[in-house]
C-alpha cells in the first residue's frame, strides 16, 4: 500500500515568538521547532496501516531546508522515506495543499494521513483541502479508524458533545486526533537509521498566495485582573462583582 503522511514543522509552543521585521510573520531566530504533535498520531496511523497491510510510508513536508529535521523525526519513528517540497517563501494552506497534491499526483496514494491541526496557524484545513484537490474522500478529526481488506473505512470523529461514525472508501485523506493511537517513541536505532533513509527534494510550481497576511501583531495585553481577596472570605465579593460589574450572572 502507498501510504503518505504529511508532517509539519512548527515552533514548540513554549518558545517565545516575536513578530519579525516584515510585520507579517514571526522572527524564526531563537525559535525551537518540533514535529507537530498531531502529526505523531498521523505517522503512527500510517505505520500501523503498513504493518497490517504491507507497503511503505512516505512522509511529505513543504517548507524551507530546516524542515528536513522534522522529516527525520518521522523517519526515526519508522517511516520509510521522505519527500521535501522545498519552498522558502511562506505559503498559505491552499498553496501548501497544492504543492502536496502536485507531489502526490503520480504516486497512486492509497491513504494520506495528516494531523488535526498544525499548532502554528491552527488551520484545521489540510485534510479537506487535500481531499478535494486529490479528488478523494476525507474524514477529519478521527479518533478511531478501521480499514477493511476491501478498503472500506469506518471511522469515528469528534463532534460537539460526542462522536460521529463516518464511512468511506480508500483512497482517502484522514486527519488524526489525539486518542487515535499512542505514537511510538523513536528508538536510538531508529534515529540512526533515519539518517540514511532517502529524502527526495521536489521543486513546487510557482504559486501566489490566495490568503494574504496584512499584518501580524502582538495580542492586546489584557490588564492583569483584580485579586478579589484570599480564601473563602472572598467569595461574597466575587459573586457581587460577577453580578454587578461583569454582569455574567
Amino acid at each position: 500500500m502507498n501510504i503518505f503522511v504529511c508532517v509539519s514543522h512548527v515552533p514548540d509552543t513554549t518558545t517565545k515568538v516575536q513578530v519579525g521585521g516584515s510585520g507579517k510573520e514571526i522572527d524564526p531566530s531563537g525559535v525551537t521547532y518540533i514535529l507537530n504533535p498531531y502529526d505523531e498520531y498521523a505517522v503512527e496511523a500510517g505505520l500501523q496501516l503498513k504493518e497490517a497491510r504491507g507497503g511503505d510510508v512516505t512522509l511529505v513536508c513543504v517548507g524551507p531546508e530546516a524542515v528536513k529535521e522534522t522529516i527525520r523525526k518521522g523517519l526515526a519513528m519508522g517511516a520509510d522515506k521522505g519527500i521535501h517540497v522545498v519552498t522558502d517563501a511562506p505559503r498559505d494552506s491552499f498553496g501548501t495543499a497544492r504543492a502536496i497534491t502536485d507531489a502526490l499526483k503520480d504516486r497512486a496514494a492509497d491513504a494520506v494521513f495528516v494531523g488535526r491541526q498544525s499548532i502554528d496557524y491552527d488551520g484545521w484545513q489540510m485534510c479537506g483541502l487535500l481531499g478535494e484537490m486529490l479528488g478523494i474522500p476525507s474524514i477529519s478529526v478521527v479518533t478511531k479508524l478501521d480499514i477493511a481488506e476491501d478498503g472500506t473505512i469506518s471511522a469515528e470523529r469528534d463532534i460537539e458533545g460526542g462522536s460521529e461514525t463516518v464511512t468511506t472508501k480508500l483512497p482517502a485523506v484522514i486527519s488524526a486526533q489525539k486518542g487515535l493511537n499512542d505514537p511510538r517513541y523513536p528508538k536510538l536505532q531508529g534515529i540512526m537509521a533515519a539518517k540514511r533513509k532517502p529524502i527526495e527534494d521536489v521543486a513546487p510550481a510557482p504559486y501566489e498566495n490566495r490568503v494574504e497576511v496584512i499584518e501580524m501583531t502582538k495580542p492586546a495585553i489584557k490588564e492583569a485582573g483584580r485579586i478579589v481577596g484570599e480564601g473563602p472570605a472572598a467569595v461574597k465579593d466575587l459573586v457581587r462583582l460577577l453580578h454587578e460589574e461583569a454582569k455574567v450572572i
Binding site: K222, R226, V228, G231, P232, A234
Partner: peptide, 27 residues
Amino acid sequence: IFQVADYGIVGDVFEVVPALTEELKSF
C-alpha cells in the same frame, strides 16, 4: 492564570470552591 483573569481569589480550592458554590446557591 492571574495575568489573564479578570477576578482572582488566592486560596485553596478545597476551601474556596465549596464556599463559592454555597454563595452562588444562595444568590
